[in-house]
């Protein structure tokens, strides 16, 4: 009784109102509009049942490809970011003493920059004729490795994944470093006394004790990957062909063409998929506030 007076609910009201109005309500509305022919050409909105979903899941349209592109991007970036960031985290906590914090600061730097700016910079670096990457490869005699990165249909997706990895590693590395630093030093000292090599210590101590943090990092990368937009939009606009189009870029595309029904159906699919994932995220991230 008293509690409701000391902690009145109107404190929650402002945040709840904004959040529900601009994020929950559109998602719920989306579940209805996904079954309509809502578009920019006519003011009428008709219920058309599962037509939008039939379109999305028909193999003659490109949508399945955009969905698989998104999954491929997500899976690839989870692997590349986690593996490289883990390597750097171990290097900067156990391999390098001198200037470790400077390295940490520099490697994290790209993570705070706007993705838009990063993508523009890499548009230049990956330019096939004049870009720094191909130039450097040619200068060190590795000209045969030069590619038409963003233009070649086979290289476009790996290039986008590469740029996204470059920007994302720092963030993951910082979290992993915090995780490694939380492992008691005595474990490593004991292992050393018992004659374990650094490699053994890594597999037997670091990896098992880091599992919860690795799980969190994977979930963060997963949530990011499924919603990827900026890097694709700026680097390739989904091209060449539709080689790099993802769910979010295609939603924007459909939206620009005024095909709101299809765009909403796609959005709702992602929504339902991620509600499930969101449940796990909350369970992970929420552990420490439970006690």
């Amino acid at each position: 009784m008293i509690r409701n007076k000391v902690y009145p609910f109107y404190f929650v009201g402002g945040a709840l109102l904004l959040y529900v109005l601009f994020f929950v309500l559109p998602s719920v509305m989306g579940l209805y509009y996904a079954f309509t022919d809502w578009n920019s050409y006519s003011p009428e909105v008709n219920f058309i049942g599962l037509d939008n979903f039939a379109l999305i899941f028909s193999s003659s349209q490109g949508y399945l490809r955009y969905i698989s592109n998104t999954i491929l991007f997500t899976f690839a970036t989870i692997v590349t970011k986690t593996v490289i960031a883990l390597g750097l985290a171990v290097l900067l906590t156990r391999g390098v003493r001198r200037l470790a914090h400077v390295h940490r600061m520099l490697i994290y730097l790209p993570a705070v920059l706007p993705m838009l700016a990063v993508s523009l910079i890499f548009k230049s670096i990956l330019n096939p004729a004049t870009g720094l990457l191909n130039e450097s490869l040619r200068n060190v005699g590795l000209g045969f490795m030069a590619q038409k990165w963003l233009v070649d249909i086979n290289w476009a997706m790996p290039s986008v994944i590469g740029v996204d990895t470059w920007k994302g590693i720092g963030y993951i590395m910082v979290i992993l470093i915090a995780g490694i630093e939380a492992i008691p030093r005595e474990y490593y000292e004991a292992a050393e006394i018992d004659g374990a090599s650094g490699w053994q210590a890594f597999w037997r101590i670091t990896i098992p004790l880091l599992m919860p943090v690795l799980a969190v990092v994977t979930v963060l990368n997963l949530l990011y990957g499924l919603k990827v937009f900026d890097v694709v939009f700026v680097l390739t606009k989904g091209g060449p062909g539709h080689a790099t189009d993802t769910v979010y870029t295609i939603i924007f595309d459909e939206f620009s063409k005024g095909r709101y029904g299809v765009a909403t159906a796609l959005s709702s699919l992602l929504f339902v998929a991620m509600i499930g994932l969101g449940y796990f995220v909350i369970r992970f991230m929420h552990r420490d506030t439970e006690a």
């Binding site: 929650v12 945040a15 709840l16 959040y19 109005l21 601009f22 994020f23 929950v24 309500l25 559109p26 998602s27 509305m29 989306g30 509009y33 949530l223 499924l226 919603k227 979010y248 939603i251 924007f252 939206f255 709101y260 765009a263 909403t264 959005s267 709702s268 992602l270 929504f271 991620m274 509600i275 994932l277 969101g278 995220v281 909350i282 991230m285 929420h286």
Partner: peptide, 25 residues
């Protein structure tokens, strides 16, 4: 109830925005 509200709020960390219907709002 408050616990449910908390979970609803932090769900937003994970769940994607529906930009299309948000236009309508």
């Amino acid at each position: 109830f408050n616990r449910a509200m908390y979970l609803l709020l932090i769900m937003g960390i994970a769940v994607p925005t529906n930009f299309v219907t948000l236009t309508k709002v």
